[in-house]
Each structure stands twice: as structure tokens, then as C-alpha cells.
Write a protein that binds this DNA or RNA. Structure first.
Lengths: 148, 148
DNA sequence: CAATCTATGTCAGAATGCTGACATGAGTCA
DNA sequence: TGACTCATGTCAGCATTCTGACATAGATTG
């Protein structure tokens, strides 16, 4: 076919998109019964591992804009899963924290998501997983470096 | 930390999401000057390689719902990038075709996207790319098989 | 043959995320 | 010090995608 075209059948980019799409669908499937979206879960997981993250930092970690994360955070705060101080201790960034309720909610979701990840890695050796890790890191680095 | 948790720093699922996010951003960046979204481009590319695909088939190929693809297809048809017969030759599926205008529009986009993919693969050997292909296929298969 | 199932195209409404914009706080630098 | 740059939180409007629903065409099955 075209020399400068993109053969979807052999394109790593296309495959990456497909894998991401399937993973997202699988996560949504197990999170829906818990009344949680992927972004919702990502936010809680990020806060569990790095307490005190600001809205903007959470947004970057969940790969959405800070505006989108702000909408989510306000809902999570209203429903008692997360707390933020009234005033910023420094600058304008408001460090967010999980409440006990947030931690309980996350526990179930985290187990469910872990099961999905285990399923995804089924049939892959340790070495292959390590290779996958390195390769994905390489792709991310290459795209980011020359991005700006 | 938690035994049943998901360590974002070492999670292949998280890394996959990150890679997909960065790739999408890179594609949007090069497609925006052409007035084209990623789904828009995907639709044209699919039609170039597999002429006669129906709306539902295009939706599956671009990883969106058929409703979303229908909205896009109607716009593409209105603007003269794509044609569909009035009546379905068989069943209800309407086979879509690129117009010359659609092909011209695709040519530029395809080259731009290919450049992004080349950039993404920079620094990876042939063997690593083959490994990446196999690994992504494995993940997709594992998630899909046990999905239902 | 009739009933059922599956897949398709399409319409309508809702949810989600994004872009644009503004004010504010902190660091930088001349 | 004062101007500038940058990051942040937040509001408003818009775009895109999704879910739900319906009618229809073909395949399957009893």
C-alpha cells in the first residue's frame, strides 16, 4: 500500500490503543458494581500512595485536566471520601487526604483492579513483564522528550 | 504497603495508560493543524485499508461506540470525505467508502501520524519492537478471553 | 413456518472531559 | 523593589462520548 501510511495491522500505536481500550473496559466492568469510575478510582489510589497531593498533581497522575479532576474532587469531598484544608498551607495548592471512608471505599476497588491486572499478565513470564515495563517506558520517554 | 493494593509506580496497567495517554496527546498535536481528531483520523485510515466497512465495524476498529462513530460518519459524509449508499446492499449495514477528497485529506494525516509512531519507536531495536507487539497482543488476549 | 436471537443504524438525553478565561500566590530577575 | 513568569484553583461554555431505547434485517432454532 502507501509507503508513508500506517498499517493498522502491524502498528504498535494502534495495538497500544487497543490494549489500553480493553484494559479500561475491564476496569470499568469491575468498578461499576462499586459505583466508581476509572478516574474516580485513580484519584483515590493516588491519594493512598501519596497523601497530600494537590488537585493539579492528581490530575497529572490520572491523565486528565486539572479542571476535570477538580469536578471529581469536589464531589469526593462533598461525599466524605476526601478532605482538603480551607486554606492553602503554602501557595494555592490544597493538599488532599483520604478519609477513613475513602480508604474503605478504595480497599474493595483496589482488590478488584489488582485482579484485572493479574488477569492481564496471565501467560507472561517475569522476564516478559520486565521487558514490557522497559519498552513502555521507552515509548513514553521518546514521545515526551521530543514533544515540546 | 498494602498487599492487595496496586503500586502505581510498578503497575503495568498504569504504565499502559500513561503510554496511551502520551501517544494520544502526540497524535492530537500533529492532527490539530489538519483540523482532525484522532477518532476522525482512525476512521479514514480504517476505510483506506478496508474499504466498505460499515459504521459498526468502524466503531469497533476505532474503539468507540457505534453511536459515536455514527455522529462522526454523518459529518464526514456531509463534508464529502466519505460516501455511503442510500440503501443497504444486504442487511442494514451501509458500506462506507472514501471519496477522493477523503483520500487527499488522509494522506497528510497519515504521514504525520507515521512520524509520531517513528518517534515513539526511536531507541528500540527490531527485536524489542517485535517483543512489544507480542506482549501487547498477550495482554489484549488475556483480558478479552476471560472478559465475558 | 414461526419464534427467537443477534447485529445494525439511528435518535435522544446524560455524563464526562476539554478549552478558554480569570484571579491569586510564589519564584525569578533586572 | 517591581515586572515578569509560572503554577494553581476555579468558573463557565463547549465538544465528545456514552447509555438507553427503538425499529429493522438476517440468522438461528424449535
Amino acid at each position: 500500500m502507501s509507503q508513508d501510511g500506517v498499517d493498522l495491522g502491524t502498528s504498535l500505536g494502534y495495538l497500544l490503543k487497543e490494549a489500553s481500550s480493553v484494559l479500561r473496559a475491564a476496569m470499568e466492568e469491575v468498578l461499576r458494581p462499586l459505583g466508581m469510575s476509572v478516574t474516580h478510582y485513580s484519584c483515590l489510589e493516588l491519594l493512598a500512595q501519596r497523601p497530600g497531593l494537590s488537585n493539579s498533581e492528581l490530575a497529572r497522575g490520572a491523565f486528565v485536566t486539572r479542571q476535570s479532576m477538580n469536578v471529581l474532587l469536589q464531589a469526593l469531598e462533598r461525599d466524605g471520601y476526601v478532605t482538603r484544608p480551607e486554606q492553602a498551607p503554602v501557595g494555592k495548592a490544597l493538599p488532599a487526604q483520604l478519609t477513613p471512608r475513602g480508604r474503605r471505599s478504595l480497599a474493595k476497588a483496589s482488590a478488584a483492579v489488582r485482579a484485572v491486572e493479574v488477569r492481564m499478565l496471565a501467560g507472561m513470564t517475569e522476564a516478559e513483564q520486565a521487558g514490557a515495563f522497559r519498552i513502555l517506558r521507552s515509548m513514553i520517554g521518546s514521545l515526551r522528550d521530543d514533544g515540546a
